[in-house]
């Protein structure tokens, strides 16, 4: 039976290599959409997401069955994702990603990114926010995580996360109003 979001943790605990492709299938759309709004370009998002899944797999291999079975998969993936986005933003310039180091640089003809102009625009706007505000807004409104889940992911109190979101949305509103004036 194909694992669902509800059963994936148990499936990962039972047979990691069989379940892992399903983990990717279940979360790649959500991760890609959210990550795309936190990094400068489509190809950055692609690289970042590949690294997120690789790190996830590497963690899972180091864990026992019990730890895998009790994992809250979604917030855990987003914790890896936000850390990876932040670290990529810190390192200046284009460095080969973990995945590229392991299996080589991607053939540019392999994936033709379909431009999603709306996403590109929003990514540009969100880039103007502070890192905590952007992360909180994306996790809350693009991804749809709960405040308590976000608080755990970014390791900030719930009240602070709420304030981050509020500040972020306010800034976005100002930006949109300036454009429409």
């Amino acid at each position: 039976m194909t694992p669902t979001r509800n059963t994936i943790a148990q499936a990962l605990a039972t047979d990691l290599d069989r379940a892992f492709p399903h983990l990717v299938t279940l979360y790649q759309r959500e991760l890609f959409s959210g990550i795309r709004t936190m990094v400068p370009s489509h190809s950055d998002a692609e690289d970042t997401m590949q690294d997120v899944f690789l790190k996830a797999y590497q963690s899972l291999t180091g864990w026992g069955n019990e730890r895998r079975a009790s994992l809250s998969v979604r917030p855990w993936l987003w914790m890896i994702a936000t850390n990876t986005c932040r670290n990529r933003a810190r390192t200046k310039g284009r460095r080969p990603t973990e995945v590229e180091l392991l299996i080589g640089v991607q053939d540019p003809t392999e994936s033709q990114p379909e431009p999603n102009l709306e996403l590109d625009e929003w990514a540009d706007r969100l880039a103007a926010l502070t890192m905590p505000a952007r992360t909180a807004v994306v996790l809350r409104h693009v991804v749809g995580l709960r405040i308590d889940e976000i608080a755990e992911i970014v390791k900030r109190p719930e009240g602070t996360v709420k304030a981050d979101i509020h500040r972020g949305l306010k800034k976005l509103r100002t930006m949109l109003e300036e454009v429409s004036l």
């Binding site: 492709p21 990717v24 299938t25 790649q28 759309r29 959500e30 991760l31 890609f32 959409s33 795309r36 709004t37 692609e46 997401m49 590949q50 899944f53 991607q106 392999e110 994936s111 990114p113 999603n116 709306e118 996403l119 929003w122 693009v142």
Partner: peptide, 10 residues
């Protein structure tokens, strides 16, 4: 803002 991941991802 939802978009499909590139096909080569998996």
């Amino acid at each position: 803002l939802q978009t499909d991941a590139p096909p080569a991802t998996i």
